[in-house]
Simulated scan of single mutants.
Amino acid sequence: MSLTGKQKRFLRAQANELTPVFQIGKNGLTQEVVNEFDESIEKRELMKVQLLQNTDLTTTEAAAFIEAHSSIQVVQKIGKVLVLYKPSTQEKYQWYSSRLPKVNG
């Protein structure tokens, strides 16, 4: 599912008050870490991940790795923080996906 600009704007606004759930440090980003993101985002749909100063990754590299190794979408990269989104498969956790602006089509 590809998000429109309006949908990304909505999600960025919602993520404004969130605090980072995960931190990526000197050990970098591996498939196991991305799997942890996937499990955690199932109940949240939207979360922030922070890159620490001691990591060798840039936010662009981290975003590309996450999107290539999962179905999570990076909504925003700001400074050393990524905002991640993935709609939940369970209806009781679909707070953001149920409120996303609909695509006109």
Rank of each mutant, 00 (worst) to 15 (best):
K77T: 12
Y93M: 11
E32N: 14
K48Q: 13
Q14D: 06
S98N: 15
Q90N: 06
F37D: 00
G5C: 08
I41M: 04
Y85A: 00
A63G: 13
A62C: 06
S70C: 10
H69D: 14
Q73L: 10
V33Q: 06
Q76I: 04
S40M: 12
K77I: 13
T19C: 08
F10L: 09
A13T: 12
F65S: 10
A63H: 12
T60E: 15
V33C: 09
N35T: 08
A64Q: 13
K77N: 10
K48M: 05
V81Q: 03
G5M: 07
L51V: 00
Q23G: 09
K86P: 00
N104R: 15
E91F: 11
M47L: 13
K86C: 01
V74M: 04
V74W: 08
F65Y: 15
Q53T: 04
N16S: 09
R99N: 11
A15W: 00
K26N: 11
E42D: 10
T89Y: 11
T19Y: 06
E45V: 12
N27C: 01
K26F: 05
L100S: 09
I24A: 09
L82Y: 00
K43W: 14
L52H: 08
Q14C: 02
I78F: 04
L84R: 01
T60G: 13
N35A: 10
I78K: 09
T89R: 14
K8N: 05
K80F: 05
A63T: 07
P87D: 03
A62S: 04
T19E: 11
G25M: 14
V49S: 02
Q94M: 14
S40G: 14
F37V: 03
L57E: 05
E67L: 02
G5I: 14
Q76D: 07
E39Y: 06
F37E: 00
N54F: 03
K43C: 12
S71T: 15
A13Y: 06
Y96V: 15
K92C: 04
E32L: 11
V21A: 11
V103E: 15
Q50N: 07
Y85K: 01
Q90L: 14
T89L: 14
T60R: 15
I41G: 01
P20D: 00
V33F: 09
L84A: 01
G5W: 05
Q14G: 02
L46I: 15
E36G: 06
L18I: 11
V74L: 08
